[in-house]
Design a protein around this nucleic acid. Structure first.
Length: 566
RNA sequence: UGCCUCAUGGUGUAAUGGUAACACAGCAGAUUCUGAAUCUGUUAUUCAAGGUUCGAAUCCUUGUGAGGCAACCA
């Protein structure tokens, strides 16, 4: 059993309702067989996660006699690579799902699919066309006018069979011939105007090598592959809605299929401040606009993983967004909520100062060091505690000091008092500036009577509580602050038809801080672990760039900040 | 000047002819050794017009808006 929860949403979406009806009617022997069918031409993204959670989730919800297949839709060798196959399998597993024995490739069916094509030719339902690409397009008609059938469509079955066999043998060049279904050149649905079933591609396939030079089209291979695997419910996104009649045409016109699946469509995920098409993501990678598919700013599964987003958070997000046919735009805040919710539970706390200012506690002995005990998780005593060292000089966050405080600011200010979390309170007595007028140091005094949260009689408790790192013990670290990749909610739409979405790239989407001051316990943070730097954000020890005793941290998501400057 | 699909607070979803609800976001308060979390309260919703009905977010008609469709891509 995989770790992903098998509980369905509280109320049934239209797909689950349909499946429940099928089950109630006793169809498919009470089985639900789904499939996740990516083309290995890129890395998976959060939109795929929606489909993965749906398809694998359905199988889990109807366990034990249901299943979900992972099938690579590898029918176009010119775009597909094993690197993508490998990454897709890794991503699906990481998300917490398991296809078990049910790993398939459309290319495994090439021989069977070829046989079905001969069957269609024999029935007079498919023919070889030798029009050029341009002629085919011209003769297909337009959205408002019918097309005209190619003259070659009237060839005999024997001639078509012969031609198709010669296509397979490699007697023709690419583009010279194509196998087409004979349906309806006047259909208002363009997909039914004698769609192409096979094209000639003298290309090397990552699995079948040079065994084939004709390759089935998606519209042909997909329904038949589904049927061959006895898929019951073939779920895909809305843009395939118009392909459904063709899907059904193939299922009902091909004899000898073990299953009779049906296709239903749901809306794909759109998220604010990002792009979600493989083509655009590929461009970001190819043009070095990001640092690869797993750049933590990418909406790819691998990018999100590297940023520190958990599989549980992604699954929970997918549950929250639901499933409809409405073309929606989901706010990134919804994702961030799921991320924070999970990270809050699992992350140990630590102190990290991103933009340090030095504080000298003038009445603290020069060579004294003491340790304060701090819980690793405020809501989970089982997480234990750690000792945090403190000495006369320390660093605090520059945001936690204001020389001219605005209303409502209750951190450190001249003459003001704050609590150093888990230690004692300090009062700022003096500001030291350099010749240019920059603050370089704060001289403070501490009050011994305020240790461990104590408040002397008659004194008001300071509202401000800040984190700190002992200067002598601080670990210098590289911390990357990631922000949204784009400056606008809908880079796609805003760029327009042939506009360039790249112009909306956020120039400050990755800020690298090399001199963050971290508490010493963070020095040995294991790569791939999640942390909350208290009062700052959630961070992830980068699994690739971290070196022993020199972790590199990626900011996954900030903490919510309820304080608005006035 | 076609065909298909869709339309519920700012956002995502629920209500399946019978009290329009939940989550996120926002706002206010409580609490807090994280201005986090937690808790409480709160703002705000059925695209429009007709029709059917005792009763319509839901059914019908028309309109409006959005998305999709004319690869030998998937």
């Amino acid at each position: 059993m995989s770790e992903a929860a098998a509980t369905p949403p509280a109320s049934l979406d239209f797909i689950r309702e349909m499946i429940a009806a099928d089950l109630a009617a006793g169809r498919n022997g009470g089985q639900v067989v789904t499939r996740f069918p990516p083309e290995p031409n890129g890395y998976l993204h959060i939109g795929h996660a929606k489909s993965i959670c749906l398809n694998f989730g359905l199988a889990q919800e109807h366990a034990p006699n249901s299943r979900c297949h992972l099938r690579f839709d590898d029918t176009n060798p010119t775009k597909e690579e094993v690197e993508y196959v490998d990454s897709i399998m890794a991503d699906v597993k990481w998300l917490g799902f398991d296809w078990g024995e049910h790993l398939f490739y459309a290319s495994d069916y090439f021989e069977k699919l070829y046989g079905f094509a001969e069957q269609l030719i024999t029935k007079g339902l498919a023919y070889v066309d030798d029009q050029t690409h341009e002629e085919m397009r011209a003769n297909r008609g337009t959205l408002t006018s019918p097309g005209t059938r190619s003259a070659g469509a009237d060839r005999s079955v024997e001639e078509n069979l012969d031609l198709f066999r010669r296509m397979r043998k490699g007697e023709f060049k690419e583009g010279e011939k194509v196998l087409r279904a004979r349906i309806d050149m006047a259909s208002p649905n363009m997909n039914l105007r004698d769609p192409a079933l096979y094209r000639i591609l003298h290309a090397h396939h990552h699995r079948t090598g040079d065994a084939w030079c004709i390759y089935p089209m998606y519209d042909y291979a997909h329904p038949l592959s589904d049927a061959l695997e006895s898929i019951t419910h073939s779920l895909c996104t809305l843009e395939f809605e118009h392909h459904r009649p063709l899907y059904e045409w193939l299922i009902s016109n091909v004899d000898g299929l073990p299953g009779a699946p049906y296709q239903r469509e749901f809306a794909r995920l759109n998220l604010t401040y990002t792009v979600m098409s493989k083509r655009k993501l590929l461009r970001l990678v190819k043009e070095d606009l990001v640092n690869g598919w797993d750049d933590p700013r990418m909406p790819t599964i691998s990018g999100m993983r590297r940023r520190g987003i958990t599989a549980a958070a992604i699954r929970s997000f997918c549950k929250t967004i639901g499933l409809t046919k409405f073309n929606s735009l989901t706010e990134i805040a919804l994702l961030e909520h799921s991320i924070r919710e999970d990270l809050n539970k699992i992350s140990h706390r630590a102190y990290g100062v991103l933009r340090p200012i030095k504080v000298v506690i003038t009445n603290y002995p020069e060579d004294q060091v003491e340790h304060f005990e701090a819980p690793n998780h405020p809501e989970d005593p089982a997480a234990g505690t750690r000792q945090v060292p403190l000495c006369r000089e320390l660093y605090i966050e520059s945001d936690d000091f204001m020389e001219f405080p605005s209303d409502g600011f209750h951190r450190l200010k001249p003459g003001g008092e704050v609590r150093l979390k888990f230690a004692f309170c300090i009062i700022c007595q003096e500001i030291i500036k350099d010749d240019a007028g920059n603050i370089v140091e704060l001289r403070c005094t501490y009050d011994d009577a305020t240790r461990h949260g104590k408040k002397p009689e008659g004194r008001t408790k300071p509202k401000g509580i800040i984190h700190w790192v002992s200067a002598r013990h601080a670990v210098d670290a590289t911390v990357r602050l990631y922000d949204r990749l784009f400056t606008v909610e809908t880079p796609d739409a805003d760029a327009g038809e042939d506009g360039d979405f790249a112009k909306f790239l956020n120039p400050t989407s990755c800020e690298t801080i090399t001199n963050a001051k971290l508490e010493p316990s963070l020095k040995d943070a294991a790569p791939g672990t999640h942390w909350q730097f208290e009062r700052v954000a959630y961070f992830y020890a980068d699994p690739i760039d971290s070196k022993p005793s020199a972790p590199v941290f990626n900011r996954t998501v900030t903490l919510k900040d309820g304080w608005v400057k006035k």
